[in-house]
């Protein structure tokens, strides 16, 4: 008799609760019954190290990922991400910008997707023209920037307050444009709202216990107040003049042309 064939579906499901997302998918391909069990998805997949989001394959346009836990590359067909630059990841969702400088927020596994409104002007001098309206002989120029450059530079970092699957009233916060200005969007908003009170360029942003914290390249930490008017407010702790923090997390490789690496924690159901 085949092993494990007398295990009930409840027991099989319990076994799947110890499997990571890729193992869970492989489990579902073993036999018909296991396939049914894998589709119940009562338990979230077992936690694993996040995946590194890589570029797309040139020929197939499949998106490449690298799983640290398994030391394996995966190529996954996600049409929504074709030609898009990934500028942020949060709760298993990706922020992706295309050549026309329009953004989407997508869960690459469930393929749930939000279209984001057009980004605000890159800087006081540089507005982002409609891709279609730029004359064809000048198609690659936005005041000295090509669309390819702008696609990478427009959003420096993007994060979410909550998993959109769990709370539809989540807030998306980006650091965008020349000065990494903070701006937010909530589902239903027609445009991004810029947070006032910025001094200098911002280096990092994080969401922690109901608040967004923004870190400029100086020595003071800011929190985003949404009421009465979106504004940055200085908060402690005092950081000594001689100590400068520039990231909320430890050293990260940053490449000026590619940006910071994007890590994805698969959140498939």
């Amino acid at each position: 008799m085949a092993a494990w064939s007398d295990l009930t579906n409840d027991i099989l499901e319990h076994i799947t609760s110890f499997l990571t997302f890729p193992d869970h998918c492989r489990f579902g391909a073993v036999c018909k019954n296991w396939s049914l069990v894998s589709k119940l998805r009562r338990y979230p997949p077992a936690p694993q190290l996040p995946w590194l989001v890589l570029e797309e394959e040139e020929e197939t346009r499949k998106r490449k990922f690298y799983s640290l836990s398994e030391a394996k590359h995966y190529s996954i067909e996600i049409p929504e991400l074709h030609g898009r630059y990934i500028c942020g990841s949060s709760h298993g969702w990706l922020f992706a910008v295309d050549i026309k400088i329009t953004g989407i927020l997508i869960n690459p596994f469930t393929r749930e997707c939000y279209e984001l409104p057009p980004f605000p002007a890159f800087s006081k001098k540089i507005d982002i023209p409609l891709y279609e309206k730029v004359p064809s002989d000048d198609i690659e120029r936005i005041r000295g920037w090509t669309f390819e450059e702008m696609q990478i530079r427009i959003v420096f970092k993007a994060i979410l307050s909550h998993d959109p699957k769990e709370r539809s009233d989540f807030t998306a916060m980006i650091l965008f444009g020349e000065l990494n200005t903070p701006a937010f969007w909530r589902p239903g908003d027609l445009c991004w709202t810029i947070v006032d009170g910025q001094v200098g360029s911002m280096d990092d942003i994080v969401y922690f216990e109901e608040n967004f914290y923004v870190l400029p390249s100086g020595i003071q930490l800011y929190v985003v107040d949404f009421e009465p008017k979106p504004k940055l407010r200085e908060v402690g702790p005092e950081i000594g003049q001689d100590k400068k923090i520039s990231k909320f997390f430890s050293f990260e490789v940053f490449h000026p042309l590619v940006g910071a690496p994007v890590w994805l924690t698969p959140n498939p159901w």
Binding site: M1, A2, A3, W4, S5, I15, T16, F18, L19, T20, D23, R26, F27, A29, V30, C31, K32, W34, A46, E70
Partner: peptide
């Protein structure tokens, strides 16, 4: 059991467990 399944293809699991797909 989940450790046995880890990093194994469906075919390999089928062979180990004699489960017909």
């Amino acid at each position: 059991v989940s450790d046995i399944l880890k990093n194994r293809s469906a075919e390999e699991v089928g062979e180990i467990s004699k489960i017909e797909n």
